[in-house]
């Protein structure tokens, strides 16, 4: 099976005055279709830099990066934008929704850059919102939604364009335990449908919901192991006390 992502000898070096700092120091890794990877590590270990490079938001100083067998390094800015648009869905810790813009419009955003007719856009947006369980909140702006709901809107935005891969940078970092599990539940369902998920987290519980754990330390890949006792979010949610969702 061909890897979705294949990085070899990746370096990201920041120069600050006379000092050089290697945020990524010779990282090599393959991600295969259908994988669910949790990237762990203390802050400053390079995991976020790695994610940003995987997501084509940032470029490495040196090294090889193949996405679906194609070299990313040689691509132009426009080609990178199209690659992000067609293949990658992002979920951020701080949700990164457009404020004062409805959930519907936020989810529609990636489609606006694809030349899709309005009627088709509507179908896709509604489908994405249904799959995160927020169809009835589509006319609400982020300030009218709870953190969990906002993150679900962000997930809907990430999947609206049927990406091959979802990149999530600490998606549960701002959420309580139960809401976190609900988000993970969506990720696991999406993964079951065949979408590759790469997620940065520093919570052990969240990492245990993945299929593989990768640990970064000082810009290097320190450890990569399959999760033995994988947690299934649907089951975990049954164990957690039910909370009334707080709507801000």
């Amino acid at each position: 099976m061909e890897a979705v992502i294949s990085v070899k000898n990746l370096f990201k070096i920041y120069k600050m005055g006379s000092q050089t700092l290697a945020a990524l120091n010779d990282v090599s890794m393959d991600v295969f279709p259908g994988e669910y990877i949790a990237i762990m590590g203390s802050s400053g270990s390079g995991k976020s830099t790695f994610m940003n490079i995987l997501g084509c938001l940032d470029v490495p100083t040196r090294g090889e990066y193949l996405f679906n067998g194609e070299s990313v390094i040689s691509k132009s800015k426009i080609q990178l934008a199209h690659l992000r648009r067609d293949n990658i869905g992002f979920v951020f810790q701080s949700f990164n929704l457009l404020s004062r813009t409805t959930a519907y419009d936020n989810v529609e955003l990636p489609l606006l850059y694809c030349n899709i007719p309005a009627s088709d856009r509507k179908i896709k947006v509604e489908k994405a919102l249904i799959s995160v369980g927020l169809k009835d909140r589509m006319n609400n702006t982020p300030s009218m939604l709870s953190g969990g709901q906002q993150q679900r809107v962000a997930i809907a935005r990430a999947i609206v364009n049927n990406p091959k891969m979802i990149l999530a940078d600490e998606p549960t970092g701002n959420l309580d335990t139960r809401t976190s599990m609900e988000i993970i539940q969506i990720f696991q369902l999406l993964n079951d449908e065949g979408i590759t998920v790469v997620m940065v987290t520093h919570e052990d519980d969240i990492a245990r919901t993945s299929k593989r754990k990768v640990v970064f330390r000082d810009g290097k890949m320190h450890k990569s192991e399959d999760t033995n006792d994988r947690l299934i979010a649907t089951e975990q949610l049954k164990l957690l006390p039910k909370l009334e969702e707080v709507i801000i």
Partner: peptide, 16 residues
């Protein structure tokens, strides 16, 4: 700037 970043992350090109 942040909004522009979000738009770029979801696929907007510089031209867009």
């Amino acid at each position: 700037t942040r909004e522009i970043g979000i738009r770029m992350a979801v696929g907007a090109t510089g031209f867009d």
